[in-house]
């Protein structure tokens, strides 16, 4: 499985990662070799096999849909690189 540089740039865009030209060319080689290695999975017969959705047999517990936590905006924004009046500050999004 070979992927080209355009694909690397496309998935980097999807992943919100800026990649330099040098990175694109090394990633193209590395990702291609990892993808050709994982393609050996094609040998496995998985007809009529359910995909695993949970590693252990368990039933997810339900709880009441109610507010049990919160009321501390200062703590939530404490680690933000930029915050103002308990809000996160981001570059202007809407003109």
């Amino acid at each position: 499985m070979e992927i080209n540089e355009a694909t690397v740039r496309k998935i980097a865009g999807l992943a919100r990662l800026k990649v330099s030209d040098d990175e694109v060319s090394s990633l193209q080689g590395e990702l291609s070799s990892i993808l050709s290695w994982v393609s050996e999975l094609e040998e496995v017969d998985t007809d009529d096999v359910e995909p695993m959705t949970s590693a252990v047999d368990t039933v997810v517990k339900l709880r009441k849909d109610e507010v049990t936590d919160g009321g501390y905006a200062k703590l939530v924004t404490k680690n933000a690189p930029k915050s103002e009046d308990d809000f996160f500050v981001v570059p202007k999004v809407v003109e």
Binding site: R16, L17, K18, N79, A80, P81, K82, F88, V90, P91, K92, V93
Partner: peptide, 17 residues
């Protein structure tokens, strides 16, 4: 946005990237 490192950019997308 929420924690850790932030490197500014021209807009929000380039800030993320």
């Amino acid at each position: 946005v929420k924690y850790g490192l932030r490197v500014e950019g021209d807009d929000i997308l380039s800030m993320y990237e």
